[in-house]
Amino acid sequence: MAPKAKLKRTQHWMQTVILHPGTNEQAVASRKAQALVSKRLFPRLVLRSKTLDSYQRIGIYRDMYLARLREALASDYPALLHYLRDEAFTELVAAYVHAHPSRSYTLNRLGDHLPEYIRSTRRLARWEFLYDLARLELAMSQLFDASESPVLKPRDIADVPPEAWETVRLKPIEAFRLLAFRYPVNAYLKSVRDRTPHPSTRRENNWVVVFRKHYTLRRLDLTRPAYDLLSALVSGVALGKAIALAGRRRAIGEVQLFSWFRDWVANGLFQAIEYDQPIHQSGRARRTRRK
């Protein structure tokens, strides 16, 4: 006689067995699984087929679970996979999804906790480098899905009255992320993508902005002053004060500033210029111009 497993109990049992690490036999015999369906009753709940026993049949779902999540994380973290190689990456995935099982209907956000998992567990050799590498790849996967923003045009820049520059604020596009690293992970990622020899992975502070232009993800290496300036700007600091903050370590020349802004605007990093005070231009008062 089949066990009187109601739908809820059956589903909780099956999920418990699928998520349990180890072998099929260990999963079915686990305390958590047996609290729902005893090992003795298992063959009567999951019937054998002509070719597979009950353990093998539930094992198909267990195998597919890990394979599917590994595929999703490999897609989001290709450089991490490249560095670790198949076996170590698969072990990382198994441990990670055990600690952070998916709670979403989409696999796109499955890897959101992976950098922090690498940092907090410190199990991997060179975990500090891999933590930085995972942070870079996570930023890219998150920006891939970010909302599209309007982009500041050169005309918008030209419209700013000279006296207003000191106090304007620049609003970045949605698909924008500033990152500071202790290891040269952007160069490493580039070498993986380009299939060129890998650079040194020794410690070296570096700064990167990741953004999306025309639906394509891009990365720009930044100097420390440029990173500081962008950091201040995206946190809402007015332009004049942001330049002063960024120039505390070393004064930033006008030529340098002009060059940065030309590149940043050309790359579409900003979506709007916002004014603190109403300005008068061409006989019209405009408080805030959001693109």
């Binding site: 497993a5 739908l7 809820k8 699928i18 998520l19 599917r68 099982p101 998916s102």
Partner: peptide, 17 residues
């Protein structure tokens, strides 16, 4: 099918009894 319980998602098309 069902894909998970207890707020989790197995990301598979799991069979119904």
């Amino acid at each position: 099918c069902w894909t998970g319980v207890s707020g989790l998602n197995v990301h598979d098309l799991l069979p119904m009894p």
